[in-house]
Design a protein around this nucleic acid. Structure first.
Lengths: 213, 213
DNA sequence: GGGCTGGTAGTCAACTTTGACTAGCGAGGG
DNA sequence: CCCTCGCTAGTCAAAGTTGACTACCAGCCC
């Protein structure tokens, strides 16, 4: 489960055709640089790898009007679209305690149909439940508490995270079931990408790592 | 903030002197292979890197009686101990939403004195509060909600995680303030390592990746 | 007494991530 | 008219991660 691949595939898909810097900007617009490892190096690397693997198609393009080096534009392929939905479904259903996975999944949840999104979130609820049971059984065998002392706090933290994660998921399911948001096939989608040249109202004001001083 | 370094330094430190396989077993005993990237490759890599950087001291040792290749034993150095405490304090105070960092910090929290542990957790509470404020201000500027649509769910998830994380931390602070666990300087410490040859009662029964079929 | 299993201890290549670095162009100041 | 700043767009080496693979020995079974 690669979060960066899901993010990059999703960004390229929403644009139709995008170059690296556009993807990078979209991810910043979504705040992804804050909750995932979406740094320039990772983004460009993911683009190249996925192009090599046939998930994206690369077009060499003349240097942009705004200066800078020649760019490469990417388009998602059929296999890339498949992979995108595979990753998206996995991100929404699997409970692996890494919050960036779920965040990325949420960012693209409306690319699914409402019924499927609900089904996936229900599966997520079951996955959390199973995980919780496995952990508590494993660490509290019949003969009293297994992990004495402060090590037990780690397990307590996990269980607490699982429970609150389940609560939150339940809330989301209710909001979606109640008609919130616009899902695939329900008319004009909510597209959260920046058009070419549009300024990012949520720019952090932080410098990019490579920015000249 | 490298979780693997914290775990490995802590494991070596508790043993006094340990070879890679012992560290690997300790981390499995703590369940770290479940909530962190503590796989054999990472562990051995971390040991070698930290030896190269002077945080650990490596001793070549004759092959063990139980067969297998010659082993290298490691001892923590003064600089390694400093680094261990630096990482530990950071793991407990900084709120970066990565649960493995906090879990690793909890595993070693009793290596600190009770008062310092409490002070660090209080700082953690403040860090969560600041983070929460920054996020909510950033995404809900004066003129109404900034991120409309489903993207707002991502922010809601973060805020929810911050709030429940704060609740849990508060509970931990109370337990510690109430006298739970045995901290540094309070007598016989609770040492969660396996003695040489001791069997691991929490072994997963899962195979190691490299185990022969 | 030969083979199989399981535990000990670790290596390695391929891949991914990180953070620093490069380079061109336009706008604006002096 | 030159110089610096900031934006566009990306590269690269070093570090870290992953999962498969190696090699050795002991005990057991037949």
């Amino acid at each position: 489960m690669s979060v960066i691949r899901l993010l990059v595939l999703g960004a390229v898909r929403q644009h139709g055709r995008a170059h690296g810097y556009q993807v990078r900007n979209d991810l910043e617009y979504w705040g992804a640089h804050e909750w995932s490892n979406a740094k320039p190096g990772s983004i460009y690397h993911a683009l190249k790898q996925m192009a090599k693997q046939g998930l994206l198609h690369a077009h060499e393009v003349a240097p942009s009007t705004a200066g800078g080096p020649p760019r490469t534009e990417y388009e998602i392929t059929g296999r890339g679209t498949e992979e995108f939905f595979r990753l998206l479904r996995e991100a929404l259903t699997s409970y692996d305690q890494k919050p960036d996975v779920l965040s990325a999944g949420l960012g693209f949840i409306v690319d699914l149909e409402r019924e499927e999104a609900l089904a996936l979130l229900e599966r997520r609820m079951r996955a959390i439940g199973e995980w919780r049971r496995a952990v508590t059984e494993y660490y509290t065998p019949e003969e009293g508490p297994g992990q004495p002392g402060h090590i037990g706090e780690i397990m307590d933290l996990w269980v607490h995270s699982a429970d609150t994660g389940a609560d939150w998921t339940r809330g989301l399911i209710e909001r979606i079931r109640g008609g919130a948001y616009t899902f695939a096939g329900e008319g004009e989608p909510f597209v959260a990408v920046l058009a070419e040249g549009e300024e990012n109202p949520y720019a952090t004001g932080e410098r990019h790592p490579g920015d000249a001083r």
